[in-house]
Design a protein around this nucleic acid. Structure first.
Lengths: 240, 240
DNA sequence: AAGTGGTCTAGACCACTGA
DNA sequence: CAGTGGTCTAGACCACTTA
């Protein structure tokens, strides 16, 4: 498929911004001028510009022009939903996964409710230890609705990225996470090879597919001395 | 100003979804049909629909129709940038703030760099203890570029929401945060009225204005037994 | 093959901003 | 006041999904 016009224009304007052709914190040409320059309709220009605004490359002043953000690109790429292995890969670090256990489990109200599953639905419980550069980082406990996993399961399957496993069946859309602090008990400390009473981070999350159905629950313990979480919060312009 | 057409249509369709008129996980009428029904152009309908998709009320299947999310509204409202006092207010809890100290401080490379400030720029350093329902929750340390604050400063000023103070001068846009786990030392434990070596959460953030300039740095310690952080991560459809 | 969304055009009017 | 963005119309063509 040929690339959409607005996408091409978006990229060209992005290049110009990065090459500092418009300067920092300066005005861009008006939408009318840009439309003429690229010989497209204004709507197409607007769509390209909107993408760049979403990326925080540009900002608008109401009825008064478009400006270049003073630190273009600072946000890009952050804040997205990525799995442990995807983050590691991006940083060029090696991941090792040890599967402690996986099995279908009997009905448990709390989990089934979080996953909006009927009582008779099958849910798989998985426990894994995940290491970065051969250092244990996190104890993961996952509950996944059986129907979103392949027919055939094996231990090797779960040494990989669960996200990518699931996305063969259904695309993931978003995840609600809660981060808490705790100190490690004896068992957790042993598994993570840290001292008892060291700080750990407890992350509880529910991940949803594009249709809005819950797919999996994750309850993980990260060692706090080696791991931190990054987020970007966006201030909502208009609150209702 | 009269409300935009697409906004009105967005609200009407939202009402219908919530009233379950289209059912859950069912198809909506096509964009053409909706355009005819509301007697507007298709573009206007598309804009209304796009808003609802961003809100996770609807989802699209490529070239194959619009569907209602199985749990419409689940995400709405979460994930935005809010200050401690704004969150408390939303939950209907009382906030108390004790200002330990505020003053202009001499040049420190790390802070000045984070704020992209020139060496001669004035930066204000503030230390506060913030309580919810009379329980101390967090020790806040803030560094704010002097020029984004009112001319006249007083201790009372800083017992309020700093965000709202700053937004009288410049609108805030987004914030990068890092969350780490630690155990409390003697001093922190005393201030938070918890035991030494209890778990605390250390949050370091930089907040930016709409133009992309850094405005303030916040380094806060939250008691982990009473406070947790919530985020929503969105999976990016198309990675580059 | 029909229906649908994805993209695009060439106009238009209005409200607001800044000189 | 002129210029700008914000919104809107009434068409159009194509690629894809679904049946």
């Amino acid at each position: 498929m040929k690339k959409a016009l607005y996408k091409q224009i978006e990229e060209k304007i992005e290049e110009r911004i990065l090459a500092n052709e418009y300067g920092s914190r300066n005005r861009l040409p008006s939408e009318y001028e840009l439309a003429e320059e690229f010989a497209v309709s204004r709507l197409t220009i607007r769509k390209a510009l909107q993408q760049l605004i979403d990326k925080k490359m540009l900002y608008r002043r109401e009825n008064a022009g478009l400006y270049v953000m003073s630190k273009p690109k600072i946000v890009s790429g952050k804040g997205g939903l990525h799995s442990f292995s995807e983050v590691a890969k991006k940083q060029g670090k090696s991941v090792h996964t040890r599967v402690l256990d996986f099995q279908e489990i009997p009905y448990q109200q709390e989990i089934w409710e979080e996953l909006e599953a009927a009582e008779e639905e099958k849910i798989l419980h998985i426990t894994r230890i995940r290491s970065l550069e051969n250092e244990p980082m996190t104890i993961e406990e996952l509950w996944i609705r059986r129907k979103y996993l392949p027919e055939k399961l094996s231990t090797t399957l779960f040494t990989q990225s669960i996200f990518q496993l699931i996305e063969q069946k259904i695309k993931l859309a978003y995840s609600h996470q809660e981060i808490e602090g705790r100190v490690a008990n004896k068992k957790e400390a042993d598994l993570l090879k840290i001292k008892e009473n060291s700080a750990i981070l407890h992350v509880h999350s529910i991940t949803y597919g594009v249709t809005g159905v819950p797919i999996l629950v994750d309850s993980s313990f990260y060692r706090a001395d080696k791991y931190k979480f990054q987020t970007t919060y966006i201030r909502n312009g208009e609150e209702k």
